[in-house]
Design a binder for these strands. Structure first.
Length: 459
RNA sequence: GGCGGCGUAGCCGAGUGGUUCAGGCAAGGGUCUGCAAAACCCUGGACGCGGGUUCGAUUCCCGCCGCCGCCUCCA
């Protein structure tokens, strides 16, 4: 296998190489759980889930770690606002996060570390940084990372310290107590009433960046293979992760991969700007598979629109899959024994190996859908069976489940209505037949008259 | 201001120095059908603007215009 990925640090496509042959260790930055997940969380999760599925399908043993940040200023603020404890807030929104990801058929991480479960490891890492001179304390505030002490700072996001210093303070007030405006907090001392953990520097809580360094190193070890995150975390979050780990003497991620943002009307969607759509809303309105297809129809690094027109279009594409599945079911094709078209599988693999080119991979699958339909039209069932099996297999690799899970048979009331309509049609009483069809249509049941008889399914 | 990215047909979105260059959605016309739905066939239309390199550029280079991201919390 020769997967190439666009490595953010290298700024080009590179061969994905592994610390341990045949195994790949992945860390992906997860959400801070202070509010409901939005469609941007959905996109990022689908992107990395698809990468994960592809790597597994390629025969690699994947260890996929993705964290939940369950202590942070925004959680504290939300708890205060709602009169809840921080852990209640975190728990509520973590549950909601995973509930939505479940609908998207996103696999749960192999390990989901929580910041509050890694305090000791973080304290240890900070202690190491203080001990070797990469961190300093400020009375009554906490412990800070000394960016100037780490010469490789900026290697991920390609910034140099001088430039950073120039622009520092341009957009945000600088905390004058810090030695340098670019220094960042490792340990925040608690104000009265805030949740806190004991540490050598006093009761407090970890800074945001330290948790990912500590958890990634703790769970995957030095020099793990792949670190992923949303594009907006490259700087400063991921950059700081590297600095913390590196300054403490650890080799950090070998490769970095970042997924693009979701936009609304060409503007980045974000909670802080208020232009966000919740994932629950999108998945209530559209088939979650349509969401997934819409996401994968765009290259993962590009910013993308993910609005009603995109979701509607993707929903139609999903219908195409389901129509094909119904067609296969109607002639009772046994997919478990059908062979896979190896040439298409190879093309699919080539597309995915090239930096997970899901748009190209989907194009291959859609082409197979068309040809499967053609084969059915020619009553070449054997060819059709191979193509349908191939579509199912490859779509499955992308996490797209083809064919409705719900049962579209066994509803005797609808079956009877269909029979009634057949009778009416036989009598050329089309007014009655059409009325029955319209009524069923209104409740989401679609009628299809075929040479082999009438079938129905739910929309 | 610094760094980076983008501008492709009605929409979304791949991609490539050159004969017919994805795919999805939508539109128009057919086939099938009592009519639909689905499916299949056909059709139209693209590469922001101006230069340059080249036998040939949407694809490379330069300039310009427009848009966006990061530099602050953010998936």
């Amino acid at each position: 296998m020769a997967v190439k990925i666009y490595d953010t640090k290298a700024r080009k496509k590179v061969a994905l190489t592994f610390r341990d042959e045949g195994k790949v260790s992945v860390y992906v930055c997860g959400p801070t759980v202070y509010d409901v997940p939005h469609i941007g969380h959905g996109r990022t999760a689908v992107v990395f889930d698809t990468i994960r599925r592809y790597l597994i399908w390629s025969g690699l043993e994947v260890n996929f770690v993705s964290n939940v940040t369950d202590i942070e200023d925004k959680i504290i603020a939300r708890a205060a606002r709602d009169g809840l404890t921080e852990s209640e807030v975190a728990q509520e929104f973590e549950e909601k996060y995973f509930a939505e990801l479940d609908r998207l058929v996103v696999m749960r991480p192999d390990v989901t570390p929580h910041a509050t479960g890694y305090i000791a490891a973080m304290v240890k890492l900070i202690s190491d940084l203080v001990a070797n001179g990469h961190a300093y304390t400020i009375d009554d505030q906490g412990v800070y990372f000394d960016v100037s002490s780490y010469s490789a700072y900026g290697e991920l996001s390609h910034r140099d310290l001088a430039t950073l210093l120039e622009s520092a303070g341009a957009r945000v007030d600088v905390d004058s107590a810090k030695r340098s405006p670019v220094d960042f907090v490792l340990w925040k001392l608690a104000k009265p009433g805030e949740p806190s953990w004991d540490s050598p520097w006093g009761a407090g809580r970890p800074g945001w960046h330290i948790e990912c360094s500590a958890m990634a190193l703790g769970l995957l070890g030095d020099g793990f293979d792949l670190h992923g995150a949303g594009d907006d975390l490259v700087f400063p979050h991921n950059e700081n992760e590297i600095a913390q780990a590196g300054a403490a003497g650890h080799e950090f991620a070998r490769h970095w991969i970042h997924s693009g943002m979701v936009q609304i009307n060409a503007e980045k969607m974000s909670k802080s700007s208020g232009n966000f759509r919740s994932l629950a809303d999108a998945l209530d309105t559209y088939d979650p598979r349509a969401f997934r297809v819409a996401v994968l129809l765009t290259q993962y690094r590009s910013a993308m629109e993910l609005g009603d027109s995109e979701l509607t279009a993707a929903a139609s594409a999903v219908d195409r899959f389901d129509s094909l599945a119904r067609r296969a079911m109607a002639v009772e094709i046994d997919l478990s024994t059908a062979s896979i078209d190896r040439k298409r599988e190879q093309s699919f693999r080539a597309a995915m190996d090239d930096d997970f080119a899901t748009p190209a991979a989907l194009a291959i699958i859609f082409a197979a859908v068309s040809e499967a339909n053609q084969a059915f039209d020619c009553e070449d069932i054997e060819t059709a069976a191979t193509l349908v099996a191939t579509v199912k297999e490859l779509a499955g690799v992308l996490g797209i489940v083809i064919g409705r899970i719900e049962d579209s048979s066994g509803d005797s009331r609808i079956d009877q209505l269909v029979v009634d309509r057949e009778t009416a049609r036989a009598n050329r009483d089309f007014a009655t037949a059409d009325r029955i069809r319209d009524n069923l249509e209104a409740e989401g049941v679609v009628i299809a008259d075929r040479a082999s008889g009438t079938t129905w399914h739910r929309r």
